[in-house]
Nucleic acid binder design. Structure first.
Lengths: 339, 339
DNA sequence: CTGAAAGCGCTTACAG
DNA sequence: CTGAAAGCGCTTACAG
């Protein structure tokens, strides 16, 4: 394998629209129209201009177009609620999948997507022209959202926006989702279902509330252990504490907690599913564990669709924010299937 | 929970630099200098201008600044090699972590990062002004890279660029990494180490080559099973085939293949680590499985650092491309520790 | 059907 | 120390 060449660094002679116009013997208006499919030009002119542009390697300046049209083709995505660290490793798969899907959907619709931190030492928000922004889990009356709206940048939120004014939002029905899992475990024979919850996962509050409500409905005492998601080892310890309390099934609310629960079960010599039924949240990386997916890909895609809808048709704003409930999906696997 | 307000959509009266100048009783030059910390203004003027700007809620236009200065503060990131689908779910954690880290590092350095597909129906590449681009796993003589260089956009590659001219690149030493895992398994007592490989993971070719070389060195026959990463179920089937051949240790080269191997072992009633030692690639989601991390976070961060270095100091280009070898990290866990 | 001109909103020599 | 002017490279009324 040989060392690759280094490209020459030098003054690049930019080919501008005037160069194309001169070479094609037309005005810059005609070049612009020909290249953008506008105006009422004869096809011969259009083809000719395009040929010349190609030959010269002309690439329109995105900056100039943005300045002139007021549209950058750029969407922002940020998350303000969750810690100062914008990209925490906990609940990462959920957020990563949402971002991946939002990026892909944006590109399908002709937009590019920029992930930005809620705040930063550099003024990145000021240095990038955004046509709209998705805010995941906004704080109540989120100041960033207000600032964006003041600047005329439409905002769609991932997760219920509370009282923050937005053009649209997407969210799961967290309570119903939790109920569906608990019902499934009960159907599989569980009588004492424990809950393992991280204090600050996506929808954690609502998840715990849903669990307590379900327990109250059934008249069974809740068995819960919570832990701080960002503390290393906290999940393992909480899982061990939970199993000590003798549940015959456990629902792990925090994404990706399956290994911790499986480990804890192993250490207590509990067989899954024989002695302990198990269900977790997340995208189901472990093919043996029943998992509830919040379907972040749908959330990301729908948020982008709502946002682009507002951008492309700002006049047609609804009286209420456009809202879509993202369905969850329970994949039943061995870990919650009694043999 | 009440329905949030919808923000009013209307003509936004943009506050421009002229408005600030008029309100502050100075010229736009002075406003620009005061806000950007340039020129030789008395502090009183500077403070006064800033107060007026704040009061009016002035936000400089990123588009205008970009057009004038030729700098957008935007970096692109793309991957051309791996399939037409730019964000395949296989090897996703590796790519996602690289992107996450690249994004965070870019923000630290005052840049935002845009993930773009190698090609798209919409001309996103033409519509976004990039100061530089990271290309992950470029094809040999990658046409996209050549196009970017023609436009004066510096490129740094993730993975060896082959003969593609770039300003810098970062990569693991895949062969050495594989050897370190095999040595570890051999030290733990393994005598027949099998390799499970996806045909097209990051560094797969080099990984398999490293395995074969290691086997040749030791005079032991290679035991490998390969599969198509994108085919559902292919990993499970290949894992089963591999274990049929009776290895006493397995190294799973493809990221996140631990569950498949653990499942296959369970089905054959092989205990890990008693009957079978196990090591995998990936970020070690399962805390019981020994894993080799390629440290994509370092790759992403370093790629951005190299790129920003070139952007900020284009004159000081080296004769050879700047290159950094990303270290791998082996986390030894229970799965490869003989009791 | 085509072109000359204005202007998007800044930054930066340059002149005073 | 401060300002008037040019100009980044386009798109878009508007005039012919």
């Amino acid at each position: 394998m040989t060392a690759p060449d280094v490209p020459r660094v030098g003054r690049r002679i930019r080919v501008g629209i005037r160069d194309v116009a001169a070479a094609a013997g037309v005005s810059i208006t005609t070049v612009s129209d020909a290249l953008n499919g506008k105006g009422r030009l004869p096809d011969t002119t259009r083809v000719h201009v395009r040929e010349v542009a190609d030959r010269l390697g002309y690439r329109p300046s995105a900056a100039a177009r943005t300045l002139r049209t007021g549209r950058s083709g750029l969407l922002g995505l940020t998350t303000t609620m969750r810690s100062t660290e914008p990209f925490a490793l906990t609940e990462f798969a959920w957020f990563a999948e949402l971002v991946r899907s939002a990026t892909a959907t944006a590109l399908d619709l002709g937009y590019a997507l920029v992930v930005l931190p809620a705040s930063s030492p550099h003024d990145v928000w000021g240095n990038v022209a955004l046509d709209g922004t998705i805010v995941v889990d906004p704080a109540d009356d989120d100041p960033l959202v207000h600032e964006l709206l003041r600047r005329g940048v439409p905002v769609v939120s991932g997760g219920h926006p509370g009282s923050t004014p937005v053009f649209g939002w997407v969210d799961n029905d967290h309570v119903a989702a939790v109920r569906s899992v608990l019902d499934h475990l009960a159907d599989a024979g569980a009588e004492r279902i424990g809950l393992l919850a991280a204090a600050d996962g996506p929808g954690a509050d609502k998840g715990v509330a849903g669990y307590r409500a379900w327990c109250a409905d059934r008249g069974v005492p809740p068995i819960t252990e919570e832990y701080e998601a960002r503390t290393p080892g906290a999940g393992r310890a909480a899982a061990a504490r939970l199993l000590e309390r003798g549940p015959d099934a456990v629902f792990g609310l925090h994404e990706g907690c399956a290994p911790e629960l499986l480990d804890a079960a192993r250490e207590r010599a509990l067989r899954v599913p024989d002695d302990l039924l198990l269900a977790c949240c997340g995208e189901g990386a472990d093919p043996s564990v029943t998992s509830l997916s919040l379907q972040p890909a749908l959330a990301g895609a729908w948020a982008v669709e709502l946002l682009v809808g507002v951008i492309d048709d700002p006049g047609a704003g609804p009286l209420l924010p456009a809202q879509r409930t993202v369905p969850t999906r329970l994949s039943v696997r061995d870990s919650s299937t009694r043999r």
